[in-house]
Design a protein around this nucleic acid. Structure first.
Lengths: 239, 239
DNA sequence: CCTGGGCATAAACATATGTGAGTGCAGCTA
DNA sequence: TAGCTGCACTCACATATGTTTATGCCCAGG
């Protein structure tokens, strides 16, 4: 199977064979992290970055009363902490939501790439910029959409992102995320997540049984969540 | 007066004289945008990025019912749309909150920098990574803090960011932002912004008269907003 | 085969924040 | 001076979402 990072980047710009080889060689080792374990902890100063090859992971912060906010959900092909290459100290933790296969890329290798491969550097930078674009979109959804719309928006986004890295079968994706975790992502209580999911189901927009999420009415889901995919930058451009 | 971008970057890592010169020369022209005018519009495909030399600006999106969410507040020294260099299409607008002096940097110049100055490239990348870190912090505050705590958090952040670029006089900063704009930033109604500001004033944490915001009790404000400055990356490190 | 734990679901009730309509002040401009 | 406009501020009332507690199902482990 091809490296999901290459799959992801090639959706946004052409990579030369040499660049692909550099990316493949950047991986120093692959490790497995079990569900509910931390991949990186807040306060860590990693010397390598983690690339998610398989599974689901979340970036999160804990606030004083013990509540948790998930600020990013990650799927195969996503870098979990590429930013630690330059930010140095992790200001949040990253958690495995399922069993995760993770490739590690030493920061020294990243530095070498920035010294020698300008276009590849821009593609890695792009990768972090897309993370930023997703953050802005989430802020908007959180601040100005209803809980139902926000959930619809998240579902649209995750469906597209999974499809991009070949993780969709038709209208169905595997989404092994609990309602409590969805609550921490959307800033809602678990109870309300349940209400909102039932509404989307009752309205015939989705089916969500076990981990299998099926999109039944994409158009209405998009409208409900006020979703447009521009921010995901799914276009190939010269960058 | 020295370029506030250089001021900002030098807080995070040393810049060589050559790098500073390159940054100075990157500016192609300076323009002035009046308050309430758009600096960049959603959907634009800019060929240059805007660096804010003076004034306050906001990145925002409008959702269907006409409501607005501000996803970033920018002060002197901030790049407003450095990400458009690689993201190409603006997925949000940028608005002048006050009269703004703006330097523009052609994308061609940025590309040249990425080809020739790896360390400077990393510093620009860093700049966008800090934007991302702020977004994550805002997400956490929005999703899991009370309105009062969220406001306290924002005030702590803005005070520190303004101080970093030499815009604080003692415990006071000029913050020419209306309560409606604060509401769009925090995802609150104007009425509730008013309630929350009054609470912070009554508790003796701040004074906010006209545009002058004074921090009266930094420690309590920090505690109330659960604020830690790690995410602003105010440390000098080799990057 | 039982048991316990994790998870989705439910109902009753509590509350933080939103809504709508209005007042008054300060600074412009005619 | 008069009138307008933008903004901070108020009050009464509405509601989306949170909280607490409980139920039942499924499945892994002993």
């Amino acid at each position: 199977m091809t490296n999901p990072l290459i799959l992801k980047l090639e959706q946004r710009d052409r990579l030369s064979d040499e660049e692909k080889k550099v990316l493949e060689n950047a991986i120093s080792r692959v490790r497995v992290v079990e569900a509910d374990e931390d991949i990186v902890r807040e306060g860590d100063r990693p010397t390598e970055s983690s690339l998610l090859l398989d599974g689901f992971a979340a970036r999160y912060k804990i606030v004083s009363n013990g509540r948790r906010q998930i600020s990013a959900l990650h799927v195969a092909g996503d870098f979990l902490d590429l930013h630690s290459f330059l930010l140095k100290t992790m200001d949040h933790g990253v958690l495995a939501l399922t069993t995760c296969r993770i490739a590690t890329v030493p920061h020294a290798t990243l530095e070498k790439i920035t010294d020698e491969y300008p276009h590849l550097t821009r593609m890695l930078w792009l990768n972090t910029l897309i993370d930023g674009a997703i953050h802005r979109e989430w802020l908007t959804a959180m601040g100005r959409l209803s809980a139902t719309a926000h959930m619809a928006h998240l579902i649209c986004e995750l469906y597209l992102r999974l499809k991009t890295v070949g993780r969709a079968e038709g209208d169905t994706v595997q989404l092994p995320i609990t309602q409590a975790e969805l609550g921490d992502t959307l800033g809602l209580s678990t109870v309300h997540v349940n209400r909102v999911l039932q509404e989307l189901r009752k309205e015939g927009m989705i089916r969500f049984q076990g981990d299998a999420l099926t999109i039944l009415d994409w158009e209405r889901l998009k409208t409900t969540g006020e979703f447009t995919s521009t921010y995901l930058n799914l276009q190939r451009e010269s960058r």
